[in-house]
């Protein structure tokens, strides 16, 4: 599987330099919101890698190599965790230095927020990858955009009520973080199982 990830990294480094530069730019941008973009861009990179696979029909060749459907699917999730993890690490390091330089108190909150965004990034992966494996990159992107629109409308409509409910639960940020981590882990495991099934079925 290392070979598959290496292939994606070579391709991404050479073909998506601008996106990688944007990830670095947003990582070192002071404040939580700008830095969050870096992590979200990181979460989108496995989809870009899949688009390049589709373009050169890599899967046709990989099916002849000692790779199982599980390897093929898992490599994209691992790539996602590597890109989200790297963007998060870069962002947290940069924000810590910025906070130290500015002597700011808000660094801890910002870093916690970035970790939340990183977990959200893995949730984005978990939702996005099965759709893309099933529909292909182009259609998968449209469906994902549709889901984002539905999510945004739902948050706009019910967000304040949801906020009230969360406040009433009176959960600490760390408690909320652990819940989000567990949710992200469960969602990713389920997503991987679904993706392997979709990928194997497609090969029939």
């Amino acid at each position: 599987m290392k070979g598959l990830i290496l292939k994606d990294i070579y391709t991404l480094i050479k073909q998506t330099r601008i996106i990688l530069l944007l990830v670095i730019f947003f990582s070192i941008t002071p404040g939580y919101s700008g830095a969050s973009f870096a992590v979200v861009y990181g979460a989108m990179l496995p989809i870009t890698a899949l688009a390049y696979d589709e373009r050169c029909k890599w899967n046709t060749l990989a099916a002849m190599m000692p790779y199982s459907a599980r390897d093929m699917v898992l490599s994209k999730y691992l790539l996602g965790y590597i890109t989200v993890g790297s963007a998060t690490l870069l962002t947290v390091t940069a924000q810590t230095f910025i906070a130290l330089f500015r002597n700011s108190d808000s660094a801890a909150n910002d870093i916690l927020s970035i970790l939340f965004v990183a977990l959200t990034g893995t949730v984005v992966l978990a939702v996005n990858l099965p759709i893309v494996f099933k529909m292909g990159v182009e259609k998968g992107r449209y469906i994902f955009m549709f889901l984002i629109a539905v999510f945004t409308i739902a948050v706009t409509a019910f967000g304040s009520r949801l906020g009230e409910i969360i406040l009433n639960i009176n959960i600490s940020p760390w408690g909320f973080g652990i819940c989000l981590l567990l949710a992200a882990v469960v969602l990713n495991v389920v997503s991987i199982l679904i993706s392997v099934k979709i990928f194997s079925k497609k090969a029939e």
């Binding site: 070979g3 070579y10 391709t11 050169c56 060749l61 000692p66």
Partner: peptide
């Protein structure tokens, strides 16, 4: 196996192919 096309990503080099296949 050699197929009707080589199907390698267009931006990689023969040296990159070596690194990929070494781990394949």
């Amino acid at each position: 196996v050699v197929l009707d096309e080589a199907y390698f990503p267009e931006v990689i080099t023969a040296a990159n192919v070596n690194s990929i296949m070494k781990h394949t």
